[in-house]
Design a protein around this nucleic acid. Structure first.
Lengths: 341, 341
DNA sequence: TTGAAAGCGGTACCAT
DNA sequence: ATGGTACCGCTTTCAA
């Protein structure tokens, strides 16, 4: 495999009878060089399509222009959206993104952190796993002077900037909307309360219900531990067949809402009308169900962008940042499933 | 930001009064070293938590253990699935993955290729954009001795190994299945015929129809240029309102099939029964529609794995590979929408 | 304005 | 079994 030997900076220097330093300066646009020399060097470099050896530059400068990005699971609409945002922003600033998934387990996250640190990324973007508590493996980055920005799934154990969704408010507005559409008996298919995002959504739901003087009933709150369509279906069935069936359901995610919708349709409930339905996350699928599913958009793309901007800023300033938290506003996506009773 | 200065191999050598070469050998498990020396070095390294400088190693060995991965669009169930497979396989072999999206446009792809090449990835996995024809920017990798493996969306202009879905056969089986369920007038919502995958699916559809002596009608084939839900809806409406309405529709993707399903339901057709419906891709959503959508699984995860395995093999063998094409079998996912007439 | 030279942190060849 | 040392390609003092 005869790959053509690439031309180096030294080659140029030799050919042009200049010193490597001069060539380096000319190429990197330093002052104090004669116009003529610069022109000459650039022309030669261009003509022989000189490309600096990134490995050498990185080694010398002790940086890689690579950002590490760890999410629980790539195959997940929200996360792939945040990744997309991160990629766009990184590109704009001349950074590359190394992606890894933790599989939502601690060992996977630790492994990803270690290999990324070993490779010498300049900083880390991370949405932690469900199992992460201490976060020593993340702390390691900070101790090497590499900034970390947490997003979406975060832990307060680590002093890093954070970008999170305003789950509380998003849920509050969603439930408010159901109420304004005339629904009064609102149930909530929640997630595991130990998970911060789920808990916040629950609190937002509760606050909205109470602010309007409506009943908050424990038995109208069901915990979906797997956040699955099946749970949505089953719990909805359970709720509707109970002595006190609700007239609206606010679901922790669109997938759960889809399960709820499937049950309601199969049991011949009118959605909306008899039962109002709200999801959360605004997955692509919510646009395409029938009826369309109302949801709460989390602006994943913008989150990825914001987190990446913060990180790159820190990298450039050689700063680790502090505990600041950026809260991303959500958007109520009112479609059909939540319309007037 | 006082990051603690990291200990280097030379530090160890000096402290232990050994030469750098000896320490290197001890750490990398070379033979011909006394047990004692090895133990001593390893102990010291462990105690001072020595971590080799990856940048230096990469520079010296002229490799990065990084694979570049370019897809048209990350936020797409199929691609995120292939990425997931690629990540898993890369991890297993000690490789990292740099991800970029082309946005399905040539300029984006060229940019991604250039930056990745500049960074010094060891090889490239790519699913090309719709606009890619010549592929000189990809050829550049080969000319630098870096192997490339194409997957899913490929071009034959480049001599590289390829991993593709058996679109023809997948489509053939899907239509076969509709026929075996009793449907006889089968329409096809296709994609743009210039796109290879779309064309193959069309050919598979046509062959199946003809093999069974059924009518192949041009007016039962509709081109969805955007592959959108809207097109699925509109073309299905058009088909069903025509003089010769079909009794089954094979759709180029699940999203299009969803549009078809939404129209059929709104127009009170029974699915299945009056109209049979098949999608393609087996997106997550197909499991959750009602009725469940029958589809064709493309094994995206396994594709990502396979492509990555091929690439890593080539990298390790310092080989560019040839034109071999691995064809991934598809799986018919029979759910409700295609069941008996 | 330019050059000389010392590294960055390893690896590997050539000695011994 | 171990040491000495010349690099890898580029950047960056320091000197001229």
């Amino acid at each position: 495999m005869a790959e053509k030997r690439k031309i180096t900076l030294k080659d140029i220097a030799r050919e042009l009878k200049l010193s490597p330093s001069t060539v380096s300066r000319a190429l990197n646009g330093y002052a104090s060089l004669s116009e003529e020399t610069i022109r000459q060097v650039k022309e030669y470099a261009e003509k022989h399509s000189y490309v600096p050896n990134a490995l050498a530059v990185n080694f010398r400068k002790n940086r890689t222009s690579i950002i590490g990005l760890i999410v629980p699971e790539i195959v997940h609409h929200f996360f792939s959206t945040t990744i997309s945002g991160a990629l766009e922003t990184a590109k704009k600033h001349g950074y590359h993104v190394l992606v890894a998934q933790s599989g939502d387990i601690l060992s996977g996250e630790v492994f990803a952190c270690r290999t990324m640190l070993g490779l010498g990324v300049d900083g880390l973007l991370i949405s932690i796993s469900n199992e992460t508590v201490e976060g020593d493996h993340i702390q390691d980055f900070l101790e090497e002077g590499k900034p970390v920005v947490q997003f979406d799934k975060i832990t307060d154990q680590l002093v890093t900037p954070k970008v999170v969704v305003d789950d509380f408010n998003g849920a509050y507005e969603a439930v408010n909307h159901l109420i304004s559409e005339g629904y009064r008996k609102i149930a909530h298919l929640s997630g595991r309360m130990e998970v911060k995002n789920a808990h916040e959504r629950f609190l937002g739901y509760k606050k909205a219900v109470e602010d309007h003087g409506l009943d908050f009933r424990e038995d109208w709150v069901k915990n979906c531990s797997a956040i699955s369509e099946q749970e949505g279906y089953d719990f909805t069935k359970q709720l509707m067949e109970s002595a006190n069936p609700p007239d609206a359901i606010f679901c922790i995610t669109d997938l759960v809402a889809l399960g709820a919708m499937n049950y309601l349709k199969s049991a011949r409930y009118e959605v909306p009308g008899q039962v109002g339905l709200m999801g959360f996350s605004n997955w692509m699928l919510s646009e395409y169900t029938s009826p369309n599913l109302s949801s709460v958009d989390q602006h994943g793309f913008e989150m990825g962008q914001k987190a990446t901007e913060l990180l790159i800023e820190l990298i450039k300033n050689h700063d680790l940042g502090d505990n600041e938290t950026v809260v991303m506003k959500t958007d109520l996506m009112i479609r059909q499933s939540s319309l007037g009773k």
